[in-house]
Simulated scan of single mutants.
Amino acid sequence: MRLEGKTAIVTGAGSGFGAGIARAFAREGAEVLAADINGDAAQALAEEIGARHSATDVADGESVRAMAGAALEAWGRIDILVNNAGITHLPAPMEEVSEEDFDRVLAVNVKSIYLTAREIVPAMKHAGQGAILNIASTAGVSPRPRLNWYNASKGWVITATRAMAVELAPSGIRVNALNPVAGETPLLKSFMGEDTPEMRAKFLSTIPLGRFSTPEDMANAALYLCSDEASMVTGVAMEVDGGRCI
């Protein structure tokens, strides 16, 4: 019960890493709000783990405000925020990625962190404590070709995490990030372009431990960084990547 008595919002909780994190947080005693643009997926996950849910578009200010408002109305405070929702564009030469895809990647991966901070940081400051976890990527550290604008968005997340950590530390708020390698999530096919045994083998050849990351891997790291065990840890971008960035 490492999060007993804590309240937590997890975005992108309807599947993949977000679902794994939400399950682990609930199992460890937290009251969880599972948010996802796919409201049905968020509801199904919430019913499974005994959590609240919210159909939330993290790239839309009004939607994020409603999500935060629902959490504050229910709990009176927000102890933990996990900015997990994210998307990518299909692999392509940088100059061939459409403006629409570029805008969507930046809105979901970048603007969402601004929007959640705008709505939730004031409540954390008022409480004098809080933990924010941003899900970045190894792509922000060691970029893969043909995913240029996705790489750039995740590099922004890492820099934003460090900037947030420095600014919010005097208010008792810790901010960290996780850098996963590609995992068994709905985004895997988009990263690879096509899901074939040959493409999987090519990806796995770049990961020294020889496997993709799993929702459980991410959940275990998130549990640590969002728990009181990590009370002296802020501004860290922890790689959960099987050695990919060595």
Rank of each mutant, 00 (worst) to 15 (best):
D36A: 09
D36F: 02
I37P: 04
I37Y: 08
I37V: 15
N38C: 02
N38A: 12
N38Y: 01
N38F: 05
N38W: 00
N38V: 02
G39D: 03
G39W: 11
G39F: 13
G39S: 07
G39A: 10
G39H: 11
D40V: 12
D40T: 12
A41E: 12
A42Y: 09
A42Q: 01
Q43V: 01
A44V: 13
A44D: 12
A44F: 00
L45N: 00
L45Y: 03
L45H: 03
L45P: 00
L45K: 12
L45W: 07
A46G: 04
A46L: 11
E47G: 10
E47F: 03
E47K: 12
E47D: 14
E47W: 03
E48Q: 14
E48D: 15
E48T: 09
E48H: 03
E48A: 14
E48Y: 03
E48I: 02
I49R: 08
I49K: 03
G50T: 05
G50F: 13
G50K: 10
A51K: 07
A51H: 10
R52Y: 15
R52G: 09
R52A: 14
R52V: 00
R52D: 12
H53E: 03
H53P: 00
S54I: 03
S54A: 15
S54H: 13
A55Y: 00
A55V: 05
A55H: 08
A55S: 14
T56I: 04
D57C: 01
D57W: 00
D57A: 13
D57K: 07
D57I: 10
D57Q: 07
D57H: 02
D57N: 14
V58G: 08
V58P: 01
V58Q: 05
A59N: 05
A59M: 07
A59P: 00
D60E: 14
D60C: 08
G61T: 06
G61R: 15
E62D: 15
E62S: 10
E62I: 05
S63D: 01
S63T: 01
S63A: 08
V64E: 03
V64G: 02
V64D: 04
V64I: 13
R65S: 14
R65P: 00
R65K: 15
R65H: 13
A66G: 11
A66V: 06
A66S: 12
M67N: 06
M67D: 05
M67Q: 06
M67R: 06
M67L: 15
M67W: 02
A68Q: 00
A68S: 11
G69P: 02
G69Q: 05
A70D: 11
A70W: 04
